[in-house]
């Protein structure tokens, strides 16, 4: 990769991107640099502005402020050139429901100037590659969610674009289908494609992305590799439910003494979360608590979730971030409640 003379060139370069919807700034000054050949993940909860940002970069939404370029081509002034470099697979499968899989691929190939014979060959090849050959002549309405996503992705690859946008490629898919989709995306990357993907799932970003940007309320709050992000919240969490809430402070003391970590207490639920850098540290904590006679009702060790990454990075959880979308539905009463707190 390093020997290629284009390797230093950026596939995506965006600075100060802003998108306003009325009063709300859905995207509020985001900078982004995606290198050629990498898989870049944009992680964030529903309503964080991920899809809006992607649509701006894909020429689908007007850029209110800031600049964006795809392989050096200005998104605003050279939209046609940008479109020729892009394959976009949306959050909702954007294939034609009234056509069969073959007809869909044929349609999109022909639209992009692929000759008749080649369109037929390329469609068949992609159906084979995406394991859709058996369903080639079936109406899309008979397709499962996973099959639709695969067809949608296949439709984005007809002209072998050098950059693919994947907007939440596995949202709503069952775990098995999600795994298959991940394999498909990995294969894609192996062919030399640059991928910019958005996701709500940390494990998806973890599985696929070389680097991750965390987006919240239209702002980039962190960027780094999956390991870097996870280490910012500890590798995993020891969750304890205690019989007696009076023991909570005791657990906090032990966490501080043994691990040097601050435990998160939830007295109402008699629960305490202890961040761990290694999972086996949980044993040290449990042994210490037994020695001090703390009665424990339940024990779980959890890997960090997006919620925890979020809490650590933004100080609020993903549910609250989603709430930003519903701001309009807040009544005056809610606002007064918040003000009086």
């Amino acid at each position: 990769m390093t020997t290629h003379h284009h390797s230093t060139e950026l596939a995506v370069r965006a600075s100060g991107l802003v998108k306003r919807f009325g009063e709300q700034r859905a995207v509020d000054g985001i900078d982004l640099e995606v290198h050629r050949g990498e898989v870049f993940g944009v992680l964030g909860p529903n309503g964080a502005g991920k899809t809006t940002m992607l649509r701006m970069l894909a020429t689908l939404l007007h850029i209110d402020e800031g600049d964006a370029a795809i392989f050096g081509r200005d998104v605003r002034t050279e939209p046609h050139a940008v479109r020729r470099l892009l394959g976009v697979t949306g959050q909702y499968a954007s294939v034609d429901e009234n056509l069969t899989a073959t007809e869909n691929l044929w349609l999109f190939a022909r639209l992009q100037g692929v000759g008749r014979a080649e369109a037929r060959a390329r469609s068949a090849e992609l159906l084979e590659q995406f394991d859709l050959t058996d369903a080639a002549k079936k109406p899309i309405s008979a397709f499962s969610g996973g099959m639709r996503r695969r067809l949608d992705l296949a439709a984005s690859l007809l002209t072998r674009p050098p950059l693919i946008f994947l907007d939440e490629p596995t949202t709503g898919l069952d775990p098995r289908t999600r795994g298959q989709m991940w394999d498909t995306i990995r294969d894609l990357v192996r062919t030399g494609c640059t991928v910019l993907l958005t996701t709500q799932y940390l494990d998806e970003a973890d599985q696929l992305a070389d680097r991750i940007a965390v987006i919240d309320r239209g702002v980039k709050v962190a960027q780094g590799t999956a390991d870097e992000l996870k280490s910012s919240v500890g590798q995993s969490t020891l969750q304890l439910q205690l019989a007696d809430p009076a023991d909570l402070s005791l657990v906090a003391d032990e966490a501080r003494r043994l691990l040097g970590e601050e435990a998160v207490l939830t007295p109402e639920a008699r629960r305490v979360n202890v961040p761990l850098t290694r999972t086996d540290q949980s044993i040290d904590v449990l042994v210490a608590l037994r020695d001090r006679g703390v009665s424990i009702e339940s024990v779980t060790v959890q890997k960090p979730s997006l919620d925890e990454v979020f809490l650590a990075l933004t100080g609020h959880d993903t549910q609250e971030a989603t709430g930003a979308d519903d701001a309009a539905s807040h009544t005056d009463h809610d606002l007064q409640m918040e003000a009086s707190r």
Partner: peptide, 20 residues
């Protein structure tokens, strides 16, 4: 990377040609 790139160099260097 063995497959080098999927990019047709013409595509990267071509202008913002409108559709004929």
């Amino acid at each position: 990377m063995s497959s080098v790139t999927m990019t047709d160099p013409d595509v990267l260097s071509g202008g913002d040609t409108r559709v004929g």
